[in-house]
Each structure stands twice: as C-alpha cells, then as structure tokens.
Design a protein around this nucleic acid. Structure first.
Ligand code: MN
Ligand code: MN
Ligand code: ZN
Ligand code: ZN
Lengths: 125, 125
DNA sequence: CTCCTTAATGAGAACTGTTATCATTGTATC
DNA sequence: GATACAATGATAACAGTTCTCATTAAGGAG
C-alpha cells in the first residue's frame, strides 16, 4: 500500500527498459510523446528518480545533467568529447583496489564510478 | 596580448592556491568577501573557468555542481554521503588499464575520473 | 462492486547553478 | 600618453530540476 503501480510509471519504465542508450529526462518525454503516452514532466522526473532508487534503471551525470540508463547493472562509461555519445564499458577496478582504499583511508566504499573522457572511434576518422 | 593579469584573477586564484579543499563558486565568493576582495560573481565564474582551462586549478562535479580544487594534479575523489566532504586519493588505474580500453573500444582516452561514494572514517563513529 | 485512504499526477511556479549581455574599466603594448 | 581590446560588474537570461497544491486514481477493506 505504500507503492502503487501507475500507468505513467510503467510508461516511463518502458521507454528505458532494455535500452542501451542514455537519455535525458527531456528525451524520455519525447519518446513518450512519440508513443502517444501522455505523462507530465514532473511525473517523468519523479518516476526516473523512483526507478533509479529501486535499481530498475541506471543514472549517469554528463556535464551535470542526468542521463538515464536502461541498464541498472554497475558499469562504467566512455564519453566522446566530439560527438557527445556515451558508451558502456565493464568496471575495471577489482575487489583488492577497493579494499586498498578502504583500508588506507578508512572509507567505506558503497559505489564507485569511472568516466573516461576522450574521442570515440567514429569521430577519429 | 591575448591574456591579461588582473587583480581579480589573482584574488580568485589566491583563494584556491594550495588549498586542499574543494570549493563551490559561492564559497569562493565568500572567501573573497572575508578577505575584503571585491569581485563580481560572473568574474569569479569566468576566472574559475579560465584557471581550470589553464591547469592552474582542478574541478570536480558533485551532484552536478562544480567544486574547484586548489590541486590541479590528476587525482581521484572519495565523497562521503553522510557529511558531504570530499577527500583526495591518488589515481589507481594504470597505463595498461587505459590501453586495454583504448585497444578494445578504439576510444582515445584523454582524461578519466573515478569517484568513490561511501562513508568516511569520521562519520562511521 | 462501492467506499475510502492516500500515493501519485499534472500544470505551472519556484529554485539553483551557471552563462550571456553590454556598457564600462583598466591592462598591456606602442 | 594614446590605443586596442581583454576583462569586469551588474543583472538578465537560461537550463535542468524540484516544489506546490488542487485533483485523480490505485488498490485494500468491507
Ligand atoms: Mn550505461
Ligand atoms: Mn581534489
Ligand atoms: Zn564520437
Ligand atoms: Zn563523512
């Protein structure tokens, strides 16, 4: 009774689900409109937040703006400075790397994110 | 003749220079006022941007807001989710890690940033 | 099925951090 | 000292996001 399944929530999730791109809230809105799903902007934000909190979608910050990710599994990102595209890459750091930091700094790592900035293959041609 | 040394630029730099904290533009403003240095907000932003472009200060994004760093050398950050503090840590990834990504994805890495989210030593007590 | 509680929605205002505008100032160069 | 134009200050504009609040509709109880 504390959580309700609304059609808006489902509609927002359906846009991202299984998608390998990374969309801004506005882009999610566009997709909804394209599919004739009427959802208010504030509701889109609320649901993106909610879905992310519940580990159903991922979230990346690119220059301070939130991009939502159909893939909720931990992974890292390449960001092309020429075309702006975001690409997924597996995490590289291993348990020992993390443990070394935790032991050395007395800091408990809950999550960590690496972003690689550079130029993608397509843009180099 | 393309670059000029103004006292405002120096004042902004003096706030950050050698500082091991990470300040928002507003906090830089506060420091300036505290030291009786009158610099307009837009000028503070312009100079932070300029100093960062010229590798004189560092810049970190925390929840989308820019934090400026007296240390311009590449290093990574721990972000405590309880107290909000930012701590410096040396980069962990090595040449091979980067090269592996470049070879595998055909992506040229110019820079990369890792942020560890968690709880710092003080906040665990 | 109907009633009821309250989570969720929609529209728009408000907010926050940052950038743009533009007339004015002052730095570097001759 | 005159000149060119980079830089400044005040403030408007902007973008992305969150808040407000009246209204709607999930979904559990009877
Ligand atoms: Mn991703
Ligand atoms: Mn730092
Ligand atoms: Zn590219
Ligand atoms: Zn802490």
């Amino acid at each position: 009774m504390t959580y309700r399944n609304t059609k808006q929530r489902k509609d927002v999730y359906d846009v991202l689900k299984g998608l390998d791109r990374h969309l801004t809230a506005d882009q999610v809105m566009e997709e909804l409109k394209k599919n004739d799903r009427q959802v208010g902007l504030a509701t889109v934000y609320r649901n993106l937040h909610h879905l992310h909190e519940n580990n159903m979608i991922g979230k990346v910050l690119k220059d301070g703006v939130a991009l939502y990710d159909g893939n909720p599994e931990p992974h890292d990102h390449l960001h092309c400075r020429m075309c702006g595209k975001i690409f997924d890459v597996p995490k590289i750091l291993n348990e020992e790397n993390i443990k070394a930091i935790e032991d050395e700094k007395g800091f408990s790592v809950e999550e960590y994110f690496t972003t690689f900035e550079g130029v993608c293959n397509d843009c180099k041609k």
